[in-house]
Structures are given as C-alpha cells and as structure tokens.
C-alpha cells in the first residue's frame, strides 16, 4: 500500500525461499511414495511370476496329496472348497449377528454407561491380534464344545467358522454402526413424524440408505476372514486329510492354511503349488475389495439424494 503506482505480482526473495522449501519437501514425499509403490509392485509381480506358470488345469481340479506332489498332479481343489465352505459358514453365522447387534446398539439401545462401555469394548476387540481369537476358538469351539456337545475333539470346519465369525464380529458391528450414523436425522424425523414406528423407519428409510455402507463392511469383513491363517492353525485344522469329506463337522485344509504349510515344504513342487495358492488368495482379496467399492458406488447412486 505504498502508493507508488501499480502492484507488482512478482516473487521476492522470501517467496523464492519458500518455493525452494516446497520443492525439497515435494521430492522427499515423492521418494516415499515411490518406495512403497515400487515395493508393492515388485512383490505382486514376483508373486504372479512365481505362481501363474503353475496354475494349469491340474492346479484347479486336482487335490493335494503328498505323493501326488511328486507326480505333479497336485492342485488346490480341496483347499479351495474348504476355504469356500469355512468362509461361507463364517458369513452365515457372523453377518446376521453382527448386523443385528449394530442396528440394536445404534438404533435401540438407550444411551447409558453400560452401552458406552459395550461400544468401546467392541471397537477395541476389532484391534485384538487374531492369535487371541485362535486361542479362544480352541478353548471354546473345540474343547468346550467337544466336552459339552460331544463334537469331534479337533479343528472342524464349524469350529473354524465360529472362530472367524467371532473375529469379524466387531468389524461388522462397527461398520453397521458407522453406516447408520451417516443417515441424516432429518430423514428419520420425517418418517417418525408421519406416524411410522421405529422399525418401519429403520426398514423403509434407514436401512436402504445405510445399505451400501453395511454391505461394504460385510465384504471387507469377509476379505479379512479370508486372509486369517493364525487362528485356523491354532484351532488345529489338519495339513492333509486322506479321505476328504465336506460338512460342518468334517475337517480339512483351507487354502490359506495349505499355502502356509506348502511354503515351508522344501520340495520345489510344493513351493510352486504354494506360489499358485498365494496368487489365488491375492486375487480373491483384491476382487472382494473391488466388489466392495463397486457395490458401494452402485447402491449410492441408486439412492436419490
């Protein structure tokens, strides 16, 4: 405002210095970003290069047997079926319970010290190491169930599914609550003000609105369950079952457990098989996450907001 004519929009020494600082930090951040992206890319390319060549027809259609390994006709068929069985049962158990608990806690439970405490505990449980769930599963779903209900005293598919269900329950509850939180209060008021009951309001307005969020949470929970190996090892799923049967009380080796055992096998054939199994796990997780994103966007657009 020195009054001597037009303003000059040119950089002075101070601005030059600030610009230099900016360039320096930009470079640092770029290096950081490059390292993580390149590292991840190398890892994925390596895994694909190791695994894909071995993913022939036998890989998909044959089951594993220690002797078959040498004959190169071993595959992941039985492990894949086991995984789908365990994860399917996990979701059937966990989704209704977790969603219902989330809806109850957010919509119905009165605010009190107890519900605050329950909420805090649930969020904390989502961060507990999965080994802890394995030990819990072993103590309750294997040993206690064997003693009280006379179930097989070993890691069954049911015990595995129950363990994984408990493991993802906090994720489901938190995701449901978060999704419900995004529903504007004005929508609830509009419905209740017309003489709808609370449940009608939830059913007709709140859930459709929150559904994308809830579904996304469910898929992410599924992908978390699919990636867990430690709890399954702890409850004692076998490495190999001579006569593979499928059913809640049967037992077998899901893909992630199989990959773990194969990777620690010294034979080249086993390592190749493990590489293939890992690619399958990787792609399945990727696909689930993409599906979650896709569903969220699709359903969100369907709601006219």
């Amino acid at each position: 405002m020195s009054g001597d004519g037009a303003l000059l929009f040119t950089a002075d020494a101070d601005l030059h210095r600030r610009r230099r600082t900016e360039r320096r930090w930009k470079a640092v951040l770029l290096v950081g970003a490059s390292f993580s992206i390149v590292g991840l890319a190398v890892l994925i390319v390596r895994m694909l290069a190791d695994g894909v060549p071995h993913m022939n027809l036998d890989f998909w259609s044959e089951s594993y047997s220690p002797s078959g390994i040498r004959g190169r006709t071993a595959g992941i068929f039985d492990a894949l079926v086991s995984s789908i069985l365990v994860l399917g049962m996990t979701m059937v158990i966990a989704v209704p319970v977790g969603t219902a608990a989330g809806i109850y806690l957010y919509e119905y439970a009165h605010k009190s010290r107890l519900t605050d405490w329950i909420r805090a505990t649930v969020s904390n449980l989502a961060g507990v190491p999965s080994v802890v769930y394995g030990l819990l599963g072993l103590a309750i779903f294997v040993r206690l169930f064997a003693d009280t209900f006379g179930m097989p005293r070993q890691g069954t598919y049911l015990a595995a599914a129950l363990t994984l269900a408990v493991l993802i329950l906090p994720i489901l509850i938190v995701a449901t609550e978060e999704a419900l939180k995004t529903v504007p209060a004005t929508v609830r008021h509009a419905s209740l003000g017309l003489g709808a009951t609370k449940w009608q309001t939830i059913r007709h307005h709140v859930l459709p609105y929150a559904l994308p969020g809830i579904l996304t949470g469910q898929i992410l929970a599924l992908s978390r369950a699919a990636g867990e190996t430690a709890p399954l090892l702890i409850i004692g799923l076998p490495t190999y079952q001579v006569f593979q049967t499928y059913g809640p009380l049967a037992t077998g080796t899901p893909l992630q457990v199989r990959a773990y055992y194969l990777a620690s096998d010294a034979r080249q054939e086993a390592i190749d098989l493990a590489a293939g199994a890992i690619v399958v796990l990787l792609l399945a997780t990727l696909a689930l996450n993409l599906l979650a994103i896709f569903l969220r966007d699709r359903l969100q657009n369907r709601i006219r907001w």
Binding site: P184, T186, V187, A190, S191, G193, H205, R304, W305
Partner: peptide, 9 residues
C-alpha cells in the same frame, strides 16, 4: 421441519 426433508425417493 425447518429444512425441507423429502425422502430420497
């Protein structure tokens, strides 16, 4: 209500 709150329908 104060703010128009039609249902997203």
């Amino acid at each position: 209500f104060q703010k128009p709150n039609p249902f997203p329908k």
